[in-house]
Design a binder for these strands. Structure first.
Lengths: 206, 206
DNA sequence: ATTTGTGTTAACCAACTGGTTAGTTATAAT
DNA sequence: ATTATAACTAACCAGTTGGTTAACACAAAT
């Protein structure tokens, strides 16, 4: 019973995650969520008062799912460049596991930047990650081992390199087909990771 | 009359562009488009049979607006690296002029990759751009002047560098505020362009 | 003057949407 | 056994949505 109680709410959440990620807030239908969760539609309003509230809960969870194993890397004892490579590798692989989640986040981010901003408090991890990462970079620069970039801009460029492909994967799948380039997805993506690491290494190392 | 005839259809299109870009397909309301165009809602169905049809027209136009001055660059007589820099500069500036358009394209791309793929025929420009660009790059590599990357992957990485920030600008605006970093938008963005050029130069030049 | 065709409108409609409600079952507490 | 509370359901509701329709205006062609 206590099991069941927790369970139903969790089932709804999982169903809602799927539907919201697939269809976005506007496209998502409460009935579809209820069907997927195999509960009566009224249950959605029983556990979560409104669509908006349910969505907010899902959005928070979705954000959380974006930055998991990453913390481990930052706290590691590796050299900066190895940390960076590990970050690239893990981040891209992770995003590619669920590309729809990535596009969901960006979709809702652009629709309602303020809401996402208010969620930023939860991303304390990200703040420390950013700071730690950039401090190690500055040390490398001061030691004359790396080219100097503006840390903030470098951060954005790295994010671009690791977030962009998962976000536009469907486009490139179609584009490749159109270009008559037969590509085996997995090898292509692993190679993208390698190439990204290589590019960053060349761009940074003096 | 002929003037007026053309005009009304164009007015509707412009209004539809605004609303679809702002709200996405699911969020957009025909009434809102009609209001913005200051015409009766029935007129939308008079000129464009359905929401779907109107949307498709808008999507094509939106895609067209994405790749304008770029063709000029490719046909230019500059050296590869200068072409690349010019591309970065113009592309980022262009996207930043209307960031909502960028996020609109990505939103709808991820919602309906097949539709976007079918629109790829219109992007003949892109195909030639891609081929030309990559051929010049290969020449540089063969001449031993540049590091060798897989052309396809390099293409994607470059796109990531130029598309990512406009796409996630609202996030970084909020993030910067949260990090207590006061940034003057325009200078920040011009510097991002410079930094991107620098990064690519370092990553490519031997 | 009358016809014809295009542009335009107000009013309407069926389908759908998020949300409610009144009532039912099941479980635990007294 | 009775009560109280939480979990659940079927039916319903008011508001919205994309889309239609029948009538109207107004110009050009006859």
């Amino acid at each position: 019973m206590t099991q069941n109680k927790v369970s139903t709410e969790e089932i709804i959440k999982n169903a809602a995650m799927e539907v919201f990620v697939e269809d976005g807030f506007d496209g998502a239908r409460m009935q579809k969520i209820a069907d997927k969760a195999q509960v009566n539609k009224a249950m959605l309003h029983y556990y979560f008062s409104s669509k908006e509230v349910l969505f907010e809960k899902i959005l928070i969870e979705a954000c959380g799912e974006m930055l998991p194993e990453l913390t481990a890397i930052i706290k590691g004892e590796q050299a900066f460049i190895d940390k960076l490579k590990a970050f690239v590798r893990i981040h891209i692989r992770q995003q590619l596991k669920n590309p729809k989640l990535v596009s969901f986040i960006f979709r809702e981010l652009n629709k309602n930047p303020e809401r996402m901003a208010s969620q930023l408090n939860n991303l304390e991890v990200m703040k420390t990650a950013y700071t730690d990462f950039m401090n190690s970079y500055k040390l490398e620069v001061e030691a004359g081992k790396m080219h100097a970039y503006s840390p903030a801009h470098l951060f954005i460029m790295i994010q671009g390199l690791v977030d962009y492909y998962p976000l536009s994967k469907p486009f490139y799948c179609a584009f490749m087909k159109y270009m008559d380039e037969a590509v085996e997805e997995l090898t292509f993506e692993e190679k993208l990771i390698d190439q990204t690491c290589l590019l960053l290494e060349n761009a940074l190392k003096k």
